[in-house]
């Protein structure tokens, strides 16, 4: 059997004495998109931050293509190909769109960065139009595009998307959905957190539901395509 690209086994994460994740397990195969669902405070973002190295694990293992990466600092996880687009986007507001994008491939060669930039502009033609514009002057949806584009510049092994539709207008949610689908078609392996079930089910292959720091349910999107209500019940009730 093929080794999963990402394998999370029994991870436990605590903030002080409060244990947020109490033994979470899941796997992500090459080219697959998995969606983490759950109510606020269920541990979705904590799980993602533990995978990308922004928070440490008390116990458990996280393997990227067989290599243990739990408790590696974020920049080392990034170098291995674990690239996160956080909820707050973490852009550089004073820099132009192109500078922000190039920073995603800063540690790669100049030629690679150039070809990656063209690839990103292929996904986001709107960003090419705005390439010299400072990020602080963009709309929320365009900023989200820059954040995703910057992550794509790094050619991630696993792309982690924390609520890509957060705070966006329906038009931008559609656009972001189309872009994520295009990335998926090109073989990207993605783990995403998404409250917008419409978007989640448009792009994800599988989902798992977290409640109080443990995985309580999961399945393939195709099985629940016509029954979103059952998933909502599983998340909130």
């Amino acid at each position: 059997m093929l080794e999963p690209t990402l394998k999370v086994e029994g991870i436990r994460v605590a903030y002080g004495k409060k244990e947020i994740l109490q033994g979470v397990d899941f796997e992500l195969a090459e080219g697959e998109t998995l969606c983490l669902l759950g109510a606020n405070g269920s541990g979705k973002s904590t799980a993602m931050n533990a995978i990308s190295g922004f928070v440490g694990c008390k116990a458990g293992t996280i393997k990227l293509e067989g290599q243990e990466i739990q408790n590696l600092p974020a920049h080392k996880s990034f170098a291995l190909g674990m690239v996160q687009v956080s909820q707050s986007r973490d852009l550089f507001p004073q820099l132009s769109v192109e500078d922000n994008l190039k920073l995603g491939a800063h540690v790669r060669s100049r030629d690679t960065a150039k070809s990656e930039l063209e690839r990103v502009y292929g996904y986001f033609p709107r960003l090419r139009e705005r390439r010299t514009q400072r990020v602080m002057t963009l709309s929320g949806g365009e900023q989200q595009m820059v954040a995703i584009g910057r992550a794509v510049m790094a050619r991630p092994r696993v792309l982690l998307l924390d609520e890509p539709s957060g705070g966006l207008s329906p038009q931008f949610v559609n656009e972001i959905g189309t872009i994520i689908s295009a990335l998926k078609e090109d073989g990207a392996t993605m783990l995403m957190i998404e409250q917008n079930l419409g978007l989640a089910f448009k792009v994800a292959d599988r989902f798992i539901i977290l409640r109080d720091g443990v995985v309580v349910d999961g399945g393939t999107v195709a099985d629940y395509a016509d029954d979103h209500e059952q998933i909502v019940r599983a998340i909130y009730l």
């Binding site: 920049h75 170098a79 996160q84 973490d90 852009l91 550089f92």
Partner: peptide, 15 residues
Amino acid sequence: IAIRDNEMTTASLGI
């Protein structure tokens, strides 16, 4: 300039 704008994020980009 990226360090000036957000040192943590810059570091997280492997820089």
